[in-house]
Design a protein around this nucleic acid. Sequence first.
DNA 1: TTAAACTCTTGATATTTGTCAAGAGGATTT
DNA 2: AAATCCTCTTGACAAATATCAAGAGTTTAA
Lengths: 197, 197
Amino acid sequence: MIILAPIMTELELYIHSSFGILEKKELSKISELFEYSKLKKGDFLLESGQKCNKLSFIQSGLLRMFALVDGNEITQWISTKGYFATDLASFVHEKSSRLAIHALVDTELYSISKENYDKIGEIVPQWHALEKQFIINCFITLEDRVFSHLSMSAEQRYQLFFENNKTLFNEVPLQYIASMLGMTPETFSRIRKNNIS
Amino acid sequence: MIILAPIMTELELYIHSSFGILEKKELSKISELFEYSKLKKGDFLLESGQKCNKLSFIQSGLLRMFALVDGNEITQWISTKGYFATDLASFVHEKSSRLAIHALVDTELYSISKENYDKIGEIVPQWHALEKQFIINCFITLEDRVFSHLSMSAEQRYQLFFENNKTLFNEVPLQYIASMLGMTPETFSRIRKNNIS
DNA sequence: TTAAACTCTTGATATTTGTCAAGAGGATTT
DNA sequence: AAATCCTCTTGACAAATATCAAGAGTTTAA
């Protein structure tokens, strides 16, 4: 892969903010492991039932992960620029995915195969520590999310999420956010009416 | 710490099943990093607001993690023999804990400090791989749990959990399981009445 | 071994949230 | 520019779940 300015920016930013500056040589070695691709709005990165054999770093755009349950789309998560997207269970255990991933807008990705992913740690030993930190943070985020379902009403979940993700509300269909928060679009709409601000 | 038979059994079992047999010397070095302790039923391993500065391996017994919200105890999780218990957010980021952890029955623990925990990887390099695997599995478990709140009714969550955790139902007050599944004890009781088996 | 404290259940009722149906406004396509 | 599809809203109603209150068994503690 040719090292493009964009990936240097986003990925570098990510790595830099995590464990400082790397040798240019190392950074280029890492970025060579990734493959650039584009998705048009609506394109699928992963279809339900497939094996998710790559991890994708979002250079720009938005991805939605969802599953089909009884004819209803359940939105698990929406991933934004600067984050990774994958079905971790499928990626790690090489089993078919319950989730589909599609692009909510035109999206640029840098994707890495499982095989290449394992090479990162060989190139940059600090990677393992970063990776661990990253997964732990994902874990904590999910723990908070479970907690919100145990202790909060739909309205409270809405308010908390709105405070922390205001920009997302202008970027994606609200029905997806509703689903992600565990409520119907109708309930979501009514809650919004009571929270005009 | 003197290496007792019990920790050899449970911890060894855990490590063995994960990455095979270690040199006895290494295993003993690891277990020396842990400290044995006992909790009586009702004793607290961690009180809400404290920093959780250790990770505890449960040799025997049961621990419940919960938070107090508006005077209601929200049970986040119940940990059993052979698993670790900690407030990961507090342990990793050294901030005060939202959760309290107490013993539901007399419980034996092997606890390790953050400082000593980091030494494990120095003694057994494979530890990092195991640790990563472990955290990922926890992540996947939580992801499934979130999914259950997005796509399932209280009754379905009950049924799923019951199928996978039948023994727990005879070991702990059911109200804790109800809370952990995100419903009141009354709803839980009514669901059980409809699921006599 | 009695009293107190838990734990679970059940009923009556209130609240929250979902379902169904219809329509308005925007965006996209032809 | 019209037709079509999306997206969001709203209303009426239904279903799921919570709340409150009381009571019956159990367990725990004095």
